[in-house]
Amino acid sequence: MIAHAIVETDSPDEFAEQIEKSQDALPAKIDANPENVEKGLAKLVLTLIELIRQLLEKQAIRRVEAGSLSEEEVERVGETLMKLENKMAQLKELLGLKDEDLNLNLGPLGDLM
């Protein structure tokens, strides 16, 4: 059917799998209806919390890398982040969400995380 364009590769299945994976990350439309509106809202809130958690983690890692934290401070920050990560894992399990669910497509800006 295609008149000119040719696709050349030795591994068509592997490329199909990766392309599908990269497109499956997010739905094209928000799936909002009366049955799942609570889950949708929870997903949005958890996504924002996850974004803040990751920002805190990155900031802490940068400070560790720069050597600007004392041993006590590293311990305290580490414990806080660890508890936050555990709590997030519990909430995700409770709401039946996976890591890849916690993201937002910002259109031309790409994905939030």
Binding site: I61, E71, V74, E75, G78, L81, M82
Partner: peptide, 15 residues
């Protein structure tokens, strides 16, 4: 190492 420090060390290595 205590738990918090171990956690930070693992995160740092992954980073």
């Amino acid at each position: 190492r205590s738990a918090g420090t171990r956690f930070m060390k693992e995160k740092f290595e992954r980073y």
